[in-house]
């Protein structure tokens, strides 16, 4: 039987914008198992990013529980949530979100500055080798292509050996060739047993995932287990 890593129980998320309430997540119940590769699909505004933010503890649900290792993340302090993110979650964003003043190697090292996990210097180079950027470690993000920047972001997400990788439309800002190479990296990660939750519009990816969750108006309208 597969081990549950994170469980969302009756999760609601409500935003107030311009005096109107928007229900971004509506009664979400979801179990994420070890080695899962989940694709979260749905139209824009369906709540994909909000769902990833709740799983990654970047945001707190208005109602409901997010259970990680038998602990409700909604009850943790900001400091504890930072530790959770530093040691258990790897984020990959659509817009890469690299620090432009730091070079490739420094960007990859960043999460290690905030984590108590001991990381051997060799690992930074191994991960950069894995994403194919070993030769460009001293380049600044602006000297790289979009695909290369996303590879740096993936390396950064992997450096702390996280329990779960959350990718928010990682190929959304890339041309098809770059998107293909990023996809290949994620498939390699899947093969190595990583747990990945990815919000995506990329239909090519759906053939390779273990589960597909369809979101609409903040609610899970369908779930396909493959």
């Amino acid at each position: 039987m597969k081990k549950v890593i994170i469980e969302l129980k009756n999760v609601y998320k409500e935003y107030v914008t311009n005096y109107t309430k928007v229900l971004a997540l509506n009664d979400i119940n979801l179990k994420i198992y070890e080695n899962d590769f989940i694709a979260v699909v749905g139209p824009s505004g369906s709540g994909k990013t909000t769902l990833l933010n709740i799983i990654g503890a970047l945001d707190k649900p208005t109602k409901g529980k997010v259970i990680f290792k038998e602990q409700d993340l909604t009850e943790l302090s900001d400091k504890e949530l930072s530790k959770y993110r530093a040691e258990n979650v790897g984020f990959v964003f659509q817009t890469f979100n690299l620090i432009p003043s730091l070079n490739v190697l420094e960007n990859v090292k960043l999460p290690s500055y905030f984590s108590s996990k001991k990381i051997h210097e060799k690992k930074f180079y191994e991960i950069l080798d894995l994403v194919g950027l070993k030769e460009r470690i001293f380049h600044k993000p602006l000297q790289l292509s979009g695909g290369e920047q996303q590879k740096v972001a993936i390396a950064r997400a992997l450096i702390n050996d996280p329990v779960i990788i959350l990718a928010d439309e990682p190929t959304g800002n890339l041309d098809s060739k770059s998107a293909e190479s990023i996809l290949r990296i994620f498939l390699t990660l899947k093969e190595s047993g990583k747990t990945i939750v990815m919000a995506t519009h990329n239909l090519r990816l759906l053939d390779h995932v273990t589960r597909i969750i369809y979101l609409q108006d903040g609610a899970i309208i369908n779930e396909v287990i493959k």
């Binding site: 990654g56 930072s82 993110r85 530093a86 950064r156």
Partner: peptide
């Protein structure tokens, strides 16, 4: 981004 990767 820094907060997302674990900065307090």
């Amino acid at each position: 981004t820094l907060r997302a990767i674990g900065a307090r």
